[in-house]
């Protein structure tokens, strides 16, 4: 990385004095050429590369699809401040998706869609833009359409509470890349959870209208909550090999955090059951709601129209 400086070292009265000066935050995951620069991408002993790649796609697709949904708020949020906050969260998740899809491609190139010879599209973009609905492995909580702001706050609270617990454990992965991605993501997700938790509390204790909207959003998303803790065979294998996390083991920790937010907000945990799958197949198997198809159509249309495009 070139040594870029924008200020004199003794510039004390400028809040922006730290801008663009190299430090650890810029060292990993921000390289525009190679997202995995600086991390050992060797697949650990005893780990099946194809299974590791599929596991990375699961976590990467969660972030990618969630990011795309949240990004729909850009220019549509209730306030300028919320617009920026939601865009920041979407960008954090997009960064996580990029690293995880790049890790999937590095572990098993066979899962990366083929493009015309000479296409400059990098592997992580091929995975994001050239796979079809049934190849996406995200949980369905990430894909259902946006409702109002209260529903989005609720979705971010549910998603980040679960993903933070997952990443805290994943930061001890035997896979150096997954451990690094998780360690970086923990800080981001801690903020997402804090942001959503505060808004959840504010809306729950705000006006009758804000509370009604929040409860409706929670009711709508609740059937998708249980799926986050259902262990897929790929997750079980990754956990057994010491590279991944078995989500079923997160239940107690995640519930404790969520119950704390619900209690502070005076909101009861909904009691209706989970949304089923088709023949037991769920998001992790590539079985999705109709909403993912239209989301991908919008997200992928430009890249697919220009398979040799350089961005």
């Amino acid at each position: 990385m070139p040594d870029v400086r924008t200020h004199e070292p003794d510039d004390h009265d400028n809040a922006y004095a730290g801008l663009l000066v190299n430090d650890v935050h810029w060292a990993f995951g921000t390289d525009f050429e190679d997202p995995l620069a600086g991390v050992d991408a060797t697949v650990p002993d005893g780990v099946e590369p194809a299974a590791l790649a599929t596991y990375c796609l699961m976590l990467g697709d969660d972030a990618l699809v969630m990011s795309q949904r949240i990004a729909e708020w850009c220019s549509n949020a209730p306030d300028l401040e919320e617009d920026i906050a939601l865009s920041n969260i979407a960008l954090d998740l997009l960064g996580q998706a990029r690293l995880l899809l790049a890790r999937a491609a590095a572990a098993d190139g066979a899962q990366v869609p083929a493009l015309p010879d000479g296409s400059p599209v990098p592997d992580e973009d091929r995975l994001a833009y050239f796979r079809d609905v049934a190849q996406f492995r995200n949980v369905r909580l990430a894909e259902v359409p946006n409702g109002d702001f209260a529903q989005t706050v609720t979705r971010i609270l549910l998603f980040s509470t679960w993903r933070l617990a997952l990443f805290e454990e994943l930061s001890r992965s035997r896979d150096a890349v997954l451990a690094a991605v998780a360690a970086k993501g923990v800080k981001e997700l801690t903020y997402h959870r804090d942001f959503a938790g505060r808004w959840f509390l504010t809306l729950a204790r705000g006006t009758a209208d804000s509370r009604r909207r929040l409860l409706a959003g929670l009711d709508e998303l609740w059937p998708l909550w249980a799926e986050l803790f259902e262990t897929h065979d790929v997750e079980r294998a990754a956990s057994g090999a010491g590279v991944g996390v078995d989500p079923a083991g997160l239940t107690a920790d995640v519930d404790a955090v969520l119950d704390q937010v619900l209690a502070a907000s005076g909101v009861d945990r909904p009691d209706h059951g989970p949304l089923g799958g088709a023949h037991g197949r769920r998001g992790r198997d590539g079985h999705h709601t109709g909403a993912l198809g239209s989301l991908l159509e919008e997200m992928q249309v430009v890249a697919r129209a220009h398979p040799r495009g350089q961005w």
């Binding site: 400028n14 004095a17 730290g18």
Partner: peptide
């Protein structure tokens, strides 16, 4: 307060 700043500096306002 910036990384190398000694004091907090006004940067703007928000709602």
């Amino acid at each position: 307060r910036g990384k190398r700043g000694l004091n907090h500096v006004h940067v703007g306002s928000l709602h």
